[in-house]
Design a protein around this nucleic acid. Sequence first.
RNA 1: GCCCCCGUAGCUCAGUUGGAUAGAGCGGCGGACUUCUAAUCCGUAGGUCGCAGGUUCGAAUCCUGCCGGGGGCGCCA
Length: 550
Amino acid sequence: MSDPVAALKQAVADAALQLRGGTQTESQPPARLDRARRAGQGHYATNAAMLLAPALGLAPREIAQALGTQLTQALRGSLLRFEVAGPGFLNLELSDDWYHSALRALLEAGAGFGTGGAAHPERILLEFVSANPTAVLVAASGRHAAYGDALARILRFHGHSVSTEYYFNDAGSQIQRLGESVRARALGQEPPADGYQGAYVAELATEIAGADDPSVPVDAIAGRAVAILLQRIKATLARYGVHFDTFFSERTLHEGAPSPLERALSRLREAGHVYEHEGAVWLRTTTFGDDKDRVLLRSGGEPTYFAADVAYMENKRERGFERQLLPVGADHHGYVARLKAAFQALGNDPDLLEPLILQFVHLVEGDARTAMSKRRGEFVTLDELLDEIGVDATRYFMLQSSHERTLDLNLDLARSDSSENPVYYIQYAHARLSSMLARVGDERVSLAVAADAVWSSPAGELHSSEQELIRKLLSLPEEVAETAQRRAPHRMAAYALELAQDFTAFYRDCKVVGAEPSETESFRIALCAATRTQLAVVLELLGVSAPSSM
RNA sequence: GCCCCCGUAGCUCAGUUGGAUAGAGCGGCGGACUUCUAAUCCGUAGGUCGCAGGUUCGAAUCCUGCCGGGGGCGCCA
């Protein structure tokens, strides 16, 4: 019994199949097995009877009754009682024996519980942040960094092979502008109107030797500036706990003969999707659902940013990644259609390119709601945010709400009430567990979690808080699966909080150290050990530290 | 004008492959520290799930329209 809930779900499915006369109908949606919403509705509930009703032509409640009887036999001692409720729900109440063996399964699996659930493991390339090295990372990048990093951790935990990558522009007009801006500052002038205005540009001007020397080409200045800024970005990411497997330079797409960009272009030409018009080279993206065709090479022969992106996609594919995940800011959503079109034009299944749109982070200070502009130099840096509220609080804050939602970052609130961030509640639960288990001592813990340990409950019955905590622990595999499938790490943040809450309720209701008889103490120690392990696992998935004391 | 995302408690947000009486944190009010960590807990107040239709045994969830907020519609990146 490696996953007790999955086994239970299977038992329900088997019973349903038997009622149907053993014939599986293809279009039947799988029955759900949910944790009960509230007291008095059993421990788990299934809607299987309601789904069976049309096929059997019987009343749902009648079917639920039969299903319950069937399950009572199949599950024997595990099912304490069942109840037909509402329009035809079947509520199941499980025995303490079932909970005991469920906890054994949790302890056996240890930190590996819930891992490897992916039905079809894939080689995935996850590219994120990819902010141009024309400035340091801003607070909004913190959202992308936390999101991508947590998603990578979760997808790996789920069983996929994931490489993370940061793509940076070290060629093109933005870089040119950066160089010009630094040069201007070095000469004591204002940067160009479309250049970079931030104070860091002036700093760069003093750091880069020869910035004010007209004999040093602007390109060289730009190159130095990019190198310095990239270094700072890496330092910030390291501090934030975000690791990238590779940093990918755009420049390399333009190098070599033929260059990756030229190769991608040839491939598109051969496939017949390229044409010339008014001196420019176009990709017929409308063939694949885009609004209009897109330019690959400008009339001057210069490749567009889009052309580089196409070459980059092709490069990822050549490196053997079957799926490409691409979290981008909401301002890029208009770009999605042409990327997917190009991906298809290259001969790929468009479903294997997944652009993920992350909504913006708005800074709120006082009553003002400001958008951040890199070019104007109006932004809060990620480093500043980390200085203010720390890594854990920042990561949790960035992860707690759905990436599809605009995030309001209230700086006043973040500063003054940082201790009210739910992350501390979760960490506190972990610290409390650590402290308790330390007090209990390794030897006693080992005895309690041993495979032959004898467990019991005081009045012969588990407390509902104990049962709820175990059910929450057991639901990790489903949570991981849903989080991974929906590319929605905020689900894991919510789960962490719920787990901490369920533990805290257990802690409130059930004495652990010194509980009588010692078989009860053993059971509760074992439950605490399993909970601490899982809290640590979940915090790790979020990239948040799990302190042993606070 | 067309396209994408969002709208749930005073605030910040969960809950959306349709399920039972819509949840949490913060804030408000009233309580609990001689206790396994009070960064905690208990009680209480607080809701037309933006609005209006539709689909069905059942809708915050799916469909249509409208309102409000954000974003996008370059041979910029």
